[in-house]
Design a protein around this nucleic acid. Structure first.
Length: 446
DNA sequence: TCTGGGGTCCTAGGACCC
DNA sequence: TCTGGGGTCCTAGGACCC
């Protein structure tokens, strides 16, 4: 009820046009919603550390300056996750290995092992599901849990959060932060407070004390561009944003401005979606090539290898696509893209590749390319296909695709590949097919 | 200095139709 | 023939997340 009161006063103060939403939020609060956000501390690095300790290594990567990162020689050199000692050197996620090494020359660099991370993510989710029937995976290392109406089982949700955190640590060997509140945004903001191995709350009456004092960049969904615009108007903290008139934010941040203003005020009422099977909107593969591509033939070959994995994933998930997009990044870091809607939805490797190649040829003006990508979207079920007189009948090719898919499924991805890749220097397929387990994808909103 | 890959959602402008 | 307005679709690009 407390939040309801606060929300009413916000809406009155700001004459903001979403009163109905706030009232709905308020009504839900009356049932005393309790939401947990569970976040693995330095996920990839912790998982690597635990794996190595369990396999006889005496060094715990978490206790030294270390990171999980790519290989600069293939131009994949960025920091994916850092240890807490590495953070003390000022190393940041996303920065280049080159600058990270400049900050800390003895930095230990571990290449990523996504298969291991998927296993850890799953084991972690399995424990959470013992504590609540309503658990939503938000990313590979984050889960939301609905802990509402659990008083009979766990008197105090905060005590339960400590139990859960300690159990994960003792059984799985890595630490988590748990944020506890009445909705997802506040729970998520709470889990981001001091790390590692902590439980924090940001209940509605704690927003001012714990959240409003933080710099604006700490707010979920405030990235570089948004923070720049907000700071140029004197909005430096989450509290500044919360107290700003939303009517004045909309002209320069549009609907995104209203979203972050709501978040700054702790207003958000999305449910925790149990075992949500994500509605897939599209799928894509892209890769940074170890060298700059300056000839069409090589570009086409990379495009084909990207198409192989995208098309395979498309067929495996039972979809056809109606939109094909191609994008590239030049050696001067200029990004561009080109897309085309096709009349009848397709899932066949050759058909997608033909469109992709056309798009590429229309877009490319012979600039050296460092990164190439393909994406298919506007998906529909592939159980029937619309045939037209004007487009090729791909029935035979679909049969070939299915045969190849099943051979690859039985004997591995490299068991069959196109001869065009022989001695070409280009890998026959790029990107993972994600065939064994659906990769946990998050939405950009809660 | 050298800058990943996988996503989602939003916006703006132009084309087209009625 | 010229003009206008509203709606929808398509496309490119940008912003954000982990």
């Amino acid at each position: 009820m407390q939040l309801f009161g606060k929300i009413s006063s916000f809406t009155q103060n700001n004459s903001f046009g979403k009163i109905r939403t706030y009232i709905l939020c308020g009504v839900k609060e009356m049932g005393k919603r309790i939401i947990f956000h569970v976040d693995v501390n330095s996920a990839y690095l912790s998982w690597e550390a635990v794996y190595r300790l369990q396999h006889g290594d005496s060094l715990d990567l978490r206790t030294i300056p270390s990171i999980v990162g790519g290989n600069p020689e293939t131009r994949h050199g960025i920091v994916l996750t850092k240890s807490i000692p590495a953070k003390k050197y000022g190393i940041q996620t996303g920065e280049t290995l080159h600058t990270a090494l400049a900050k800390c020359p003895e930095l230990v660099i571990i290449p990523p092992n996504y298969g291991l991370y998927m296993q850890c993510s799953k084991a972690f989710g399995d424990i959470l599901r013992e504590y609540s029937p309503l658990v939503e995976q938000y990313s590979i290392d984050e889960y939301f849990m609905d802990f509402s109406n659990m008083e009979r089982l766990f008197k105090d949700p905060v005590v339960a959060a400590y139990m859960l955190k300690d159990r994960i640590k003792s059984e799985l060997g890595f630490t988590v932060n748990i944020g506890v509140s009445t909705n997802k945004i506040l729970a998520k903001m709470a889990s981001e407070l001091q790390k590692p191995d902590k439980v924090h709350t940001i209940f509605p009456d704690e927003i001012a004390e714990k959240m409003w004092v933080l710099p604006i960049e700490e707010l979920f969904m405030v990235g570089r561009a948004t923070s720049k615009k907000l700071r140029s108007r004197g909005i430096r903290t989450i509290g500044d944003l919360a107290h700003y008139d939303p009517k004045l934010i909309k002209p320069f941040l549009h609907s995104h401005g209203l979203l972050v203003w709501n978040y700054a005020n702790g207003i958000e009422c999305n449910p925790v979606r149990e075992n949500r099977r994500p509605i897939i909107k599209g799928m894509g593969n892209s890769t940074t090539i170890a060298f700059d591509i300056d000839d069409r033939k090589t570009a086409h070959l990379v495009l084909l290898s990207l198409t192989e994995t995208v098309a395979t994933r498309l067929r495996q998930s039972g979809y056809c696509a109606r939109l094909v997009s191609v994008s590239f990044r030049t050696n001067e870091f200029f990004d561009c893209s080109h897309q085309r809607k096709i009349f009848s939805a397709i899932d066949c490797t050759n058909a997608i590749y033909e469109v992709a190649r056309e798009l590429f040829d229309e877009l490319w003006k012979c600039e050296p390319i460092r990164h190439l990508g393909i994406r298919v979207s506007e998906l529909c079920q592939n159980d029937f296909q619309q045939m037209t007189f004007f487009e090729k009948d791909y029935a035979k090719q679909r049969a070939v695709d299915r045969a190849i898919d099943s051979i690859r499924e039985r004997f591995g991805n490299g068991s069959v590949f196109r001869s065009a890749f022989l001695n070409s220097g280009v890998r026959f397929s790029s990107g993972g097919t994600m065939d064994d387990e659906e990769y946990p994808m998050m939405s950009s909103q809660l």
